[in-house]
């Protein structure tokens, strides 16, 4: 493993479709353990299986998983009354456990705006319309906490987004985004995550990008929890392209595409990744 960093050095930026170094070094324990893992369904592998055993251990134990701090905050916010209507989430929804399953179906088509709506946007709509409270800012601790809580109560349920009917055109746009080369490095999402999973990009092992059940997740690099859209912005910047805004139509569409690629994989919020 000694030469990895050096060997990978150049690979990263030219990586598009070529020049990736050796295949999977550690891919998480023995092959047997992997096969049994709940993180592999119908040949689809969660990014969990592309993490080191140390990182997996952080996710596996709720008391080692720093993301759980956000779940706890979310639980407090759930019953916190805010806004002119004098309501909390609980006022309408009851116990948060009743939201089990909701996470697996978003983003979905929203007849009101005639486009997709994701979990974060759904939470904020509840706030502005039902609670008459201010929308939470994207990536704010509050919005992350609530989104994480909604994911957490769906833990282990399979992702199950719909891409037919009115969602179809948005799914197609999301897919097009995934395949669109962009940035100075002229790379598309698919170059890493469809063409080259299991190979190294510099020193990072590329995953299949089936992160539908993982976000918001605790990222070691960020040293905090973050949304999928934050990760998109990072990815876009890595290929030296101008990122879109978190919550933009472009990102919600590609979120649907990624979640569809993850259909069947379990919800693991809050996941832990490098």
């Amino acid at each position: 493993m000694g030469g990895l960093a050096g060997k990978g050095m150049l690979a990263v930026f030219g990586a598009g479709a070529l020049a990736l170094a050796a295949t999977g070094w550690m891919a998480a324990g023995t092959p047997e353990a992997q096969a049994k893992s709940k993180y592999e369904v119908d040949g689809k592998k969660s990014g969990y299986l592309y993490s080191t055993p140390e990182t997996q251990a952080m996710q596996d134990d709720d008391f080692m998983n720093q993301g759980m701090l956000w779940v706890e905050r979310g639980q407090k916010l759930w019953s916190q009354v805010e806004g002119a209507a004098g309501k909390s989430c609980q006022s309408c929804h009851g116990d948060v456990e009743k939201m089990r399953g909701a996470y697996t179906t978003y983003p979905k088509y929203d007849p009101k705006t005639k486009k997709l709506i994701n979990i974060e946007q759904r939470i904020n709509r509840c706030r502005t319309e039902q609670m008459k409270a201010k929308a939470w800012k994207w990536e704010s601790d509050e919005l992350l906490s609530m989104t994480t809580l909604i994911g957490y109560v769906s833990r282990d349920l399979p992702m199950n987004v719909k891409i037919d009917g009115p969602a179809k055109p948005f799914f197609e746009k999301g897919k097009a985004f995934y395949y669109q080369r962009r940035g100075q490095l002229d790379m598309a999402c698919k170059h890493c995550h469809i063409d080259n999973p299991g190979k190294f990009i510099r020193a990072d092992l590329l995953s299949e990008g089936r992160a539908g059940g993982a976000f918001p997740l605790y990222r070691l690099k960020w040293q905090k929890l973050g949304s999928m859209h934050r990760r998109f912005r990072g990815c876009n910047r890595q290929v030296r392209s101008e990122p879109y805004k978190a919550g933009s139509d472009e990102y919600v569409n590609v979120e649907l595409y990624i979640k569809w690629r993850s259909n069947g994989l379990p919800v693991e919020v809050p996941a832990v990744r490098r």
Binding site: M1, L4, A5, G8, A11, V12, A15, C192, F200, I201, R202, A203, D204, L206, K221, G234, C235, Q238, R274
Partner: peptide, 10 residues
């Protein structure tokens, strides 16, 4: 400990 410079993590 080797601290890697990630392709996209770094």
């Amino acid at each position: 400990v080797k601290v890697t410079i990630g392709g996209c993590g770094g």
